[in-house]
């Protein structure tokens, strides 16, 4: 079945995308009712980032993802995406602790850290980067986004930033005019 148009891949192969998506689902789990990294589209953020800003990390990703499946096979005789949630968590925990075998460059803890960093970036970045879709990451933790102004009432004891609406993004900023220093700098 083809992927939806808004999930068009520009770097990952389909199996790699499925693997990264599965990892996203364990690092910050979610469901339609209680969204996590997958619902935020963190895997799509990573796909775009590796095609652009993080292009120098492509080889590390290819080698690391291959090693994850090899380790999953060695432990459970299945690919990572076919494992149960608990089995997937144990693979990730072994990577984090450095006990997962078969990882050389990148080392297992290093690749775990890279993945977890990128998953968090993709969950909590501005949606312009293809992650944090529908602002689910920001809503999850109560971040009010690219607010161009806050007021005294927002800083008072008893105020709650998670109740502030609307949440603003870079796209909203483009609609606004800002002051700037009068000297032109």
């Amino acid at each position: 079945m083809p992927l939806p148009k808004d999930e068009t891949l520009i770097f990952f192969s389909k199996p790699d995308n499925a693997l990264v998506k599965a990892i996203c689902g364990r690092l910050i789990p979610g469901s339609p009712e209680d969204p996590g990294a997958v619902e935020a589209g963190a895997h799509q953020y990573i796909d775009h980032a590796l095609a652009g800003y993080y292009h120098s990390q492509r080889t590390a990703y290819r080698r690391g993802l291959t090693a994850i499946n090899a380790y999953s096979q060695s432990q459970y005789q299945k690919e990572f995406v076919e494992l149960s949630n608990d089995q997937q968590d144990s693979v990730l925990t072994d990577m984090q602790k450095g006990t997962a075998t078969g990882f050389e460059s990148p080392k297992a803890p290093d690749f775990f850290n890279t993945l977890f960093q990128h998953v968090r970036e993709g969950t909590f970045c501005d949606p312009a980067y293809h992650g944090n879709q529908n602002l689910v990451g920001w809503k999850m933790i109560g971040f009010d986004g690219a607010q161009v102004a806050h007021f005294d009432s927002h800083m008072q004891v008893g105020a709650d930033q998670s109740e502030r609406t609307p949440i603003l993004t870079l796209a909203d900023m483009e609609e606004l005019n800002f002051p700037a220093p009068e000297n032109g700098y």
Partner: peptide, 16 residues
């Protein structure tokens, strides 16, 4: 917890 559901719940509670 370093990742997973417990980590997510901590972020939800403590970020703000």
């Amino acid at each position: 917890p370093s990742f997973g559901e417990g980590y997510k719940q901590a972020l939800k509670k403590y970020f703000r």
